[in-house]
Nucleic acid binder design. Structure first.
Lengths: 150, 150
DNA sequence: CTAAACCCTAGAGAATACTCTAGGGCAAGC
DNA sequence: GCTTGCCCTAGAGTATTCTCTAGGGTTTAG
């Protein structure tokens, strides 16, 4: 049982274009071709592609994924290299998680203000501070003036 | 008290190039200029730039950040728009977090294998499976053969 | 046998976010 | 006044990851 590129595209959620691009970039050296030159994907191939997606989804660059796949193709001799590569990548994921949750906190802080019942007052005050600071430094006030409704 | 672009660069961790690029892209309309055309950053400006970094660090595109900044410049009338924008972005961050931890699980699963004392055996068996599958489908075996050491 | 639906490659194009260069002005210390 | 180190703009160049087009074979259903 093998799959066509279209079937794989639907299974893994990558466009046919992307799959061919990945192949061109050396990410799919394990995919065999039939007599007509068509790619034939096995279930084992799908497993590796799944791993490629994991690495991609966590921000690994194509060139690094190619390196990992190269290791996989090389067989058991490359286990240490793969181990190292994945451990390093794991650290990068943890770092990404740290950055995301840290920045999320700040965004939540801003949302608390916007969601407050007196958001208008708070924001108006902030704006007045900013304008006062510009004036204090003899700078142009860049904020948009709305005419007072009468 | 105002800051030069170099000082801001050091404070916020963006290169001078990037700051100028952001200005060109409309992310810093609040930064005033002195008589010579030099940018003069206030502390309030630094606060907004900090927010820009939060949005950028969590994957927001420049064009979207520009929209948010446009709202900020418009004053309190735009609070609902900012609220909406940040709430939507918040959801995207949660989604990113979900994707990261899901994929991290899979990578940890692979690392468990590579870190196991019998990793060599497991990997060899996987490889044999993959090769058998290729043979079963009358496909070329793409895996690298190492000569048996004698 | 023919049309529709696939498959292929090579290479151009696009989107995003920088990064740098060229050419020139300004400011501070000696 | 001159050098050094900043500052400016405009625009070219780079890196990455797709995405699509052109041109051409293959497969399948009727």
């Amino acid at each position: 049982m093998t799959y066509t590129i279209k079937e794989v595209s639907e299974k893994v959620g990558l466009s046919i274009y992307t799959l061919r691009y990945y192949d061109k970039e050396g990410l799919l050296p394990f995919v065999a071709r039939n007599e007509a030159g068509y790619r034939e994907f096995t279930d084992g191939d799908l497993n590796i592609i799944h791993t490629i997606c994991c690495l991609k989804n966590t921000g690994m660059k194509i060139s690094k994924i190619r390196q990992y796949i190269g290791d996989v193709m090389a067989g058991p001799d490359s286990i240490e290299d793969r181990q190292q590569l994945l451990h390093d990548h794991r650290e990068k994921i943890l770092e990404q998680q740290r950055i995301l949750s840290e920045n999320l906190k700040e965004i939540d802080y801003k949302l608390d203000i916007y969601d407050a019942p007196n958001a208008g007052d708070i924001i108006s005050r902030e704006l007045q501070f900013a304008e006062a600071e510009k004036r204090a430094n003899a700078l142009v006030d860049p904020y948009i003036k709305t005419l007072p409704g009468r």
